[in-house]
Amino acid sequence: MMREVLRLENVAKSFGSVQALRDVSLTVNTGEVVALLGDNGAGKSTLIKAISGLHGIDRGRIIVDGKEVTIRNPRDAMNLGIETIHQDSSLAVDLSIARNLFLGREPVKAAFLGPLAPLDLPQLKRQASDLLRRVGIRKNLDADAPIKALSGGERQSIAISRAMQFFAKIIILDEPTNNLGVEETHGVLRFIKEVRDAGHSVIYITHNIHHVFQVADRIVVMRQGTVVADIKAEGTSILEVEAIITGADLHELEVDARRS
């Protein structure tokens, strides 16, 4: 049963004289992978940053689970169940896996001490180990190992596990397969399907249209700060989507493809 978890209505955002987003409207349902496509500068990152609380919006409404919300900072977004995995930058590589998994949400004892409160290290370690097993990271990873010691794919898995652990409603993945090998990319794509099957919604940003067709249920294309297409992945083709992204004529593209 599909239910709407996130709806954007006429969202707009400018930076000085540059209008990065205009009238963006979008819905995401439960258990759905929505691929967000668009050329560089189309406004994908700006949109994601607005949803994940890295910057505000100028106009429009954001509705989560039927309620209009204001997202002022990343913590607001996380509390609403929106977890974002940013491109290459979601983990602190010098910290251990366990410390990364709970970064910003550390379990503490004596919470009245505020930021100086002592970390509940045994609990941190135990929950981290549980999580690593639960999300099916097959290798016997030590929760105390620094992220530095992991491969790119393992790091991405850790970042995605972190998003899953707080039972996020919506997981946003910003180019999660960048800089990954073939095997690791397949791992991440498989992971995305599992996340969906477990009932989470996923917004998946990528440049790789082939990956989109492997995992996405719906494809949303942005161009020049606005949504130009919102189509079901089933029943469309790579060329068609490419044409929408670049704004080129589909016929010309087909001719090009035949020539090369």
């Binding site: 900072n73 913590r75 970064l103």
Partner: peptide, 28 residues
Amino acid sequence: FYVLNYSKVGNWISAIGSNRNAAIARGV
């Protein structure tokens, strides 16, 4: 020693120095 290794803010300090954007994205 306590602050850096065992407190919540210590975790934040290391995370900020390691990857500031990641720390901010986690609400630090």
